[in-house]
Write a protein that binds this DNA or RNA. Structure first.
Length: 215
DNA sequence: GGTAAGATCAGC
DNA sequence: CTGATCTTACCT
């Protein structure tokens, strides 16, 4: 009898060669596996980020907005790779790249539900967080999955990688999908490019201290 | 070369 | 509300 894993297909890269908001929908509800640590986590909250002013999806809030730089180069490469950045000098945040090769775009993984490997996650997160809080918030996702810059740019669809994206085993539960403004961004603050699964534990919405309306 | 803000979080 | 902590972007 074939195991579940043997039957599982790799994630189809073409699903991510689309606009950030469409790619965000493809990634929501999928799983991230870290096989060496026995960790499997379901993605419960994401945010879409676009590209420079002259791109198909101009996004003043995105790291891609200034154009290609050393930091954001992964997001200008092919879809389905990890883009990792250091946030506030402290946290490592995880994104999946999207759009066509040469275009800037990414999906920030804001929250995950830890399905297995909670013991491994707690070695980094400690005993304080509740079970539902283990992967709530982008900084905590990074710590839960042990993300750092050594993951930068790696193929997120490679099942032999340290961590990789798995396709959903069933279709996205549309009735549970919610959307709203992205958290903590100053520019394009009204754009509803944050998606999450209702009834799962996700991060709290926080308006940027001086959020600007889009114009 | 200096500096302020930032796709955050935990602890008062 | 604030401090932690450091990279990036932008100014002189």
């Amino acid at each position: 009898m074939a195991s579940r894993d043997a039957l599982r297909m790799p994630f189809d890269r073409s699903l991510l060669q689309v606009s950030p908001i469409e790619a965000a929908r493809q990634v929501l509800g999928c799983r991230i596996a870290v096989p060496a640590e026995g960790i499997v986590a379901t993605i419960t909250e994401v945010e879409a980020y676009g590209g420079p002013a002259d791109s198909r999806w101009p996004d003043p809030a995105a790291h891609c907005y200034p154009g290609l730089t050393a930091r954001n180069r992964a997001m200008f490469g092919p879809a389905g790779h990890w883009y990792v950045y250091r946030s506030y000098g402290i946290h490592f945040c995880l994104n999946v790249t999207c759009a066509e090769d040469g275009e800037g775009g990414g999906i920030l993984i804001r929250s995950v539900r830890v399905d297995s490997g909670a013991d491994a996650v707690r070695r980094r997160r400690g005993e304080k967080p509740s079970e539902s809080g283990l992967g709530r918030g982008p900084g905590n996702v990074g710590q839960a999955l042990g993300i750092d810059l050594s993951d930068y740019g790696h193929d997120a669809l490679d099942c032999a990688g340290r961590l990789f994206l798995q396709p959903r085993e069933s279709s996205l539960p549309e009735e549970r999908v919610r959307s709203g403004p992205r958290v903590g961004v100053r520019r394009a603050a009204e754009r509803p490019w944050r998606l999450w699964l209702e009834d799962d534990s996700v991060s709290a919405y926080r308006k940027h201290k001086s959020a600007l309306a889009e114009f």
